[in-house]
Write a protein that binds this DNA or RNA. Structure first.
Length: 594
RNA sequence: GGCCCUGUGGCGCAACUGGAUAGCGCAUCUGACUACGAAUCAGAAGGUUACAAGUUCGAAUCUUGUCAGGGUCACCA
């Protein structure tokens, strides 16, 4: 069935009969646009086994293939490249195969071999910002891609709900808050709590300045500022289980969660299972004790426990403090093991965390391997670069952040402005319009972020905002909407939608589209293997560009030949379906009109 | 300083993982709406892939060195 597979065996047969040599493999690539052909065999690698002129060898193999394989209708050889032309019938036959197939490109879902994908994982002392958006979009999209590639997926996050950061907001609220609540202020809960985090920092700095003015050393002042001491005291009380502190902590975290829920909903991401650091930060200590017995870890004189990774080219790393309390690493070891206990079918995990933690995860994975967990081989740190502003790094404390909610509102407004100018939506109601603007605005934002290789840092300039023209989400959404328009018209004209006559013959643009459609399933697999939404984004862009070119050159509904017209309508429909499927994997919706 | 990531036309990104003449979008310049929707299409101009050696039939991609930017080297998370 698969043409490349057939060709591979036939090329091997050809070489065997022509030169009496068995090839271990054959290298294929899609033929470049400038040459005639559909698929290309690279002859050069064969020279290691077959002596001779690559051009001649190509010719001979080409002639053999035309004889042996029905689908091969012609060939040409340029330098060491054998370009093979595949028949139109083959492509039309392929199209009939996928014509009415739902979920074309998606692998059949498996019940075993689950993957847990962690993303978002915010602190609970401040609202989500642009950096979190990148994290969320990446994690969500990778989870969807893995599903489409046939994996069972659990989406999760670990919420950093305890620690000095939330205590700072709590102290500031107690001191300056005079009982404010989200209800009394009309603020989203996460915004309210975030404000107090900023308030804390301001008060803290003032106190330092005051102490320094009174003659204190700066370092000492930073440590001894009363408000900081108060926050530290509060953290100790929290750990001791002080009822009043715990109640305040619950209340303020609750506000934050309500706020987060709104943001997540607007962003279109979700989770199957939540983990809270307040429940997991004590986990892992038993594992360390076990590892100590096995000799994976060792204890220093002061009682702290370490692992020596110098043989692997890394450093020594602490896994338990001298007072016996857990560190970040201890917690992550424990959480990983807990997750596999909760979901025994997990065969691997993906951690969506910024690249400043590359080292941490390298060490974590190595430790889990040394502890002998089979699934430790299949852990992946989905590392991504920072989102920087022209002014530099985003800092919540200093208020130099692009807020997630604000950004989504702005994107929606921009989409609205552009739409109003174009004025194609007279018959839409106001709420329908708002929904559509949001779809387009978010589409622009998501595509803008996801089309870039995660490893690269993004410089985000709020002044220039995100493009709506060219290689963008709206460009692709627009093409989808235009196809829908054609389909509505075709429906009212009663264009037949039956299997296509494989003798109709193909326009070069049609063949181009069919070739691209054929690559969708393997693109999903590749994207899953590489944890790369960017591959899906780029694929979709190429497909849409191909369609627009086709659309401009070939008349669809104006075609007089009924078979031809039917094929073109159905081809358009399939392109739209693939665009929709692909965009779903990126978490982007597509509109009927725009 | 050690380790990790990045460096591709003015700007933002690609390049099927070592293949052919390095593609695309903004921006600039030309054309195409009385048309299946111009948020589109067709074309022009713009490159020594940071630099230098090496590996081979063949390098943006692999190796080594240099330069630039970022990250990380806490009994913080």
């Amino acid at each position: 069935m698969n043409i490349q597979h057939t060709l591979e065996t036939e090329v091997k047969k050809a070489v065997l009969s022509l030169f009496e040599v068995e090839l271990p493999s054959v290298e294929f690539q899609p033929t470049r646009k400038d040459f005639e052909g559909d698929i290309t065999v690279v002859v050069f690698p064969m020279l290691r086994f077959v002596k001779g002129n690559p051009a001649q060898i190509g010719e001979q193999i080409g002639e053999f293939l035309v004889e042996a394989v029905a689908e091969v209708v012609a060939f040409n050889v340029i330098k060491g490249f054998l370009n093979i032309v595949i028949s139109d019938e083959y492509y039309l036959h392929f199209f009939n195969g996928i014509r009415s197939q739902e979920n074309f490109g998606y692998a059949t879902p498996a019940d075993s071999d689950a993957v847990m994908v962690e993303y978002s994982s915010p602190n609970t002392n401040k609202p989500l910002h642009l950096g979190h958006i990148r994290n969320n979009l990446l994690g969500y999209s990778v989870a969807e891609i893995l599903k489409a590639a046939g994996k069972k997926v659990y989406k999760t996050q670990i919420i950093n709900d305890r620690g000095i950061h939330i205590c700072k907001s709590m102290v500031a609220w107690q001191r300056f808050g005079s009982g404010e609540t989200p209800e009394s202020t009309g603020l989203k809960g996460d915004k309210l709590v975030g404000n107090y985090y900023v308030t804390f920092d301001k008060a803290y700095k003032e106190e330092i300045a005051k102490l320094v003015a009174e003659g204190a050393d700066l370092k000492v002042a930073e440590k001894e500022a009363p408000i900081l001491q108060e926050a530290q005291e509060m953290l100790r009380n929290w750990e001791a289980g002080d009822e009043e502190v715990v109640a305040l902590w619950k209340k303020m975290n609750g506000w934050v969660y309500e706020g987060f829920d709104v943001t997540y909903k607007n962003l279109g991401v979700d989770f199957d299972q939540l983990y809270y650091e307040s429940n997991t930060y004590l986990l892992g200590k038993d594992v360390v004790a076990d590892g100590l017995e096995k000799g994976v870890f060792y204890r220093k004189d002061d009682g702290s426990v370490w692992i020596d990774l110098t043989d692997e080219g890394l450093d020594e790393k602490i896994v338990l403090r001298s007072d016996g309390t857990a560190v970040y690493m201890t917690q992550d070891i424990g959480t990983a093991i807990q997750r596999v206990k909760d979901y025994p079918d997990i065969g691997g995990m993906v951690y969506t965390v910024g690249n400043e933690q590359d080292y941490h995860f390298k060490v974590l994975f190595l430790i889990l391997k040394k502890l002998g967990f089979s699934w430790a081989e299949k852990l992946h740190h989905l590392s991504y670069g920072m989102v920087d502003l022209p002014s530099g790094k985003m800092k919540s404390r200093e208020g130099t952040v692009v807020d997630a909610d604000d950004l989504m509102v702005e994107m929606t407004q921009t989409a609205g402005n552009i739409s109003e100018e174009l004025g194609k939506l007279e018959e839409y109601s106001e709420t329908e319009k708002q929904q559509l603007y949001k779809m387009i605005g978010l589409g622009a934002l998501k595509y803008y972020i996801l089309k870039v290789d995660p490893k690269k840092r993004i410089l985000f300039d709020p002044e220039e905002s995100v493009d709506f023209q060219g290689n963008t989400g709206p460009f692709i959404q627009y093409t989808y909407a235009r196809i829908q328009s054609i389909l509505r018209k075709a429906d009212s004209l009663g264009v037949p939608m039956e299997a296509v006559d494989t003798k109709v013959g193909l326009h070069p643009k049609e063949k181009e589209l069919l070739k691209q459609l054929r690559h969708f399933p393997e693109t999903i697999q590749l994207a899953a293997q590489q944890y790369s939404p960017a591959l899906i984004a780029n694929y979709t862009y190429d497909l849409v560009k191909g369609f627009n070119s086709f659309y401009q050159q070939v008349s669809i509904l104006g075609e007089t030949n009924v078979d031809q017209k039917s094929f073109r309508v159905q081809l358009s429909k399939k392109v739209a379906e693939v665009v929709q499927s692909a965009f779903l994997l990126l978490g982007i919706q597509v509109p009927e009109r725009m």
